[in-house]
């Protein structure tokens, strides 16, 4: 027993060094898996306030670009307004309503919430954005996040007024995508090297893909609505050994100056995820 104490005293520095290293690795591996282990809401709220203050100061420099993006998006949305279309006859009238159930009997599935970006990294291997909108304003985990130009990421953590978004530029990020041209599905990931390019894997070789083709979100995603812009194909590489293309995709979103985003809530997210994760019995 005495020898154990002597040993600990002798190598106290080495042991505490090893202990702290192990602690750091454990923290990191927990965080990569669940993104919630160590980051209590309190710390998130504190760094969020700080980031909000700094972003408020820095926002002035990007106002011109933000205005351009928002006005372009407004123009696009105005063109989609119901009042621009003439109904074919007068016996039926098309009404677009913001209620949960409209007069045509359709059920609202997706709701958009605007949010300001108050923190953003893109130089690391694991990048996050911080948004000034939290659970008190209706943000839930796993909600999809899109910008004026293209999709941005997925919410991984919320506190009362701030939420944290796993950017597309994160090694654990996976988004179900497809080619707009022929709906061939694939998966969007990031290889960690260049923040302007994503990787699209598992695209079947039957797809007629060409450089410049548009890549959009697929019909299979639980949190993203279908046909949201992701990017354009920049290069195509085909592996002889597999039946799939690997595409390099230029992001539509400019992650360097992003200021405003929309959170997308899927009213049926819980239902879809639950039924997808159920393992079938008796097969």
């Amino acid at each position: 027993m005495k020898n154990i104490f002597l040993f600990i005293r002798r190598y106290f520095t080495l042991l505490s060094f090893l202990l702290l290293e192990v602690l750091a690795i454990v923290l990191l591996s927990n965080a990569s898996k669940s993104h919630e282990a160590f980051f209590s809401s309190a710390v998130n709220e504190l760094t969020g306030h700080f980031n909000g203050w700094y972003s408020g100061f820095r926002g002035y420099f990007g106002l011109k670009e933000a205005n351009r993006q928002l006005s372009e998006e407004n123009a696009r949305l105005r063109n989609m307004m119901a009042s621009n279309f003439q109904a074919p006859d007068t016996t039926r009238k098309l009404v677009t309503d913001t209620l949960v159930r409209d007069t045509m009997g359709r059920v609202r599935k997706f709701t958009y919430l605007p949010a300001r970006v108050i923190g953003n990294t893109y130089t690391l291997q694991a990048n996050f954005l911080t948004l000034e909108r939290g659970s008190a304003q209706g943000v839930r985990k796993q909600m999809a996040v899109t910008g004026p130009e293209g999709i941005v990421g997925v919410v991984v953590e919320t506190s009362a007024n701030v939420s944290k978004v796993m950017s597309l530029l994160h090694r654990n990020s996976r988004v179900s995508a497809m080619l707009k041209k022929d709906n061939s599905a694939g998966s969007i990931e990031w290889d960690g090297s260049n923040p302007s390019f994503l990787t699209m894997r598992n695209v079947t070789k039957g797809a007629k893909v060409a450089v410049g083709d548009t890549v959009v979100t697929s019909y299979y995603s639980a949190n993203f609505p279908a046909r949201l812009m992701i990017g354009k194909v920049a290069s195509i590489s085909s592996d002889q050994a597999s039946n799939f293309y690997t595409l390099k995709v230029k992001t539509a979103t400019n992650f360097f100056n992003i200021q405003y985003v929309y959170l997308i809530e899927n009213a049926r997210y819980g239902e879809q995820v639950q039924i997808e994760s159920n393992t079938p019995k008796n097969q």
Binding site: E21, I25, L28, F39, L124, A126, F128
Partner: peptide, 12 residues
């Protein structure tokens, strides 16, 4: 790490 969202990455 609190600012970059990667607990332990810079601490190690």
């Amino acid at each position: 790490d609190f600012f970059t969202g990667t607990p332990g990455l810079h601490a190690a």
